[in-house]
């Protein structure tokens, strides 16, 4: 009786609730993603990257003259470079691993548990399902980059220190705290876009398989193959197609005046990957039935 009285106008409620709001779906998915222990563990491990780097440099005074891996050498006594160097290091493998894990869980993982079938049968459009899953992966990508950047800035300022809260650029100029933080934010945003490209491809692979490991293997294997292809001189014409070949542009943020060409072209390349990955994911999810 109470149920009947509570649902007094059943017809109108059915019509207004026939489509669940996308925000609520995404929020549910994000809550679900962030409750996974592996996501939290990965984010925690990512926070250790700038800390380890900063403590190591503060203890040893950084690599010797000119023989360290470039950007890391630039961190010594120049703490605000730390987040940028840490993002560059993490972008080569750890950050892609993080988003690939999230993307693998999003579709292939659900399929492996048999829970994807329920989602496909639920009265939620397939495109909305993909958007909801993508929101979860996007959240992980943004959080991962933010964790590295914020912990990097704090570690840089506290542990490495620097010339009174300023950043020395590769060009030998000195930037104030505000502009230095702006540069860090620029690299963080650029890194997020590069990660979205990987996430989109990972989601596309995830849509085709029900084994999460396949997604991880495809993404990490793909990155290694890209690295090998970029190293072969006779395949130089391939460079503009490879996502990874634009990743040296991250160091451009440390030059003064700021050159935007490399950052812009690598962002454009990443957006092409995002569009292609998203299109393939939607296409495959519309025809997937289990």
């Amino acid at each position: 009786m109470t149920t009947v009285s509570a649902s007094a106008p059943p017809a109108s409620r059915a019509s207004t609730r026939s489509v669940a709001p996308l925000g609520r779906l995404a929020a549910a998915e994000i809550r679900w993603v962030l409750r996974r222990p592996r996501t939290l563990v990965l984010l925690g491990l990512l926070a250790l990257v700038p800390i380890a780097l900063g403590v190591g440099i503060a203890l040893t005074g950084g690599p010797g003259d000119g023989d360290g891996p470039g950007l890391v050498a630039a961190v010594a006594g120049n703490g605000l470079v730390l987040p940028i160097a840490a993002l560059g290091l993490a972008l080569s493998l750890l950050l892609p691993l993080t988003v690939a894990t999230a993307a693998a869980d999003a579709l292939a993982g659900e399929a492996a548990h048999g829970t994807l079938r329920g989602l496909l049968l639920a009265p939620v459009g397939r495109v909305r399902l993909v958007v909801m899953k993508a929101a979860g992966v996007l959240t992980v990508a943004v959080l991962a980059v933010l964790v590295v950047a914020v912990v990097g800035v704090l570690t840089g300022l506290v542990v490495v220190g620097g010339p009174s809260g300023t950043m020395i650029t590769l060009s030998g100029t000195t930037l104030g705290l505000g502009e230095a933080l702006g540069r860090v934010a620029l690299v963080a945003g650029w890194t997020i876009v590069q990660l979205l490209a990987i996430a989109a491809v990972a989601l596309a692979v995830s849509a085709f398989t029900e084994h999460p490991l396949v997604v991880l293997a495809a993404v990490l294997g793909g990155l290694i193959v890209f690295g090998v292809l970029a190293a072969v001189p006779s395949l130089e014409w391939l460079q503009p197609l490879l996502l990874t070949s634009g990743w040296t542009a991250g160091a451009d943020a440390l030059r003064d005046p700021l050159p935007l060409d490399g950052l812009a072209s690598s962002t454009g390349r990443a957006l092409v990957y995002v569009v292609l990955g998203a299109a393939v994911t939607v296409w495959q999810m519309r025809r997937r039935d289990g």
Binding site: P240, S265, G268, R269, V275, R287
Partner: peptide
């Protein structure tokens, strides 16, 4: 959703990729 529209979506994605890569490479 007919097979035709999937083919259309696939072609559209391929076109976006080709144009995007073309803009970057040109």
């Amino acid at each position: 959703m007919g097979r035709r529209s999937w083919v259309g979506a696939g072609l559209g994605a391929a076109l976006v990729g080709a144009v995007g890569v073309g803009l970057l490479v040109a």
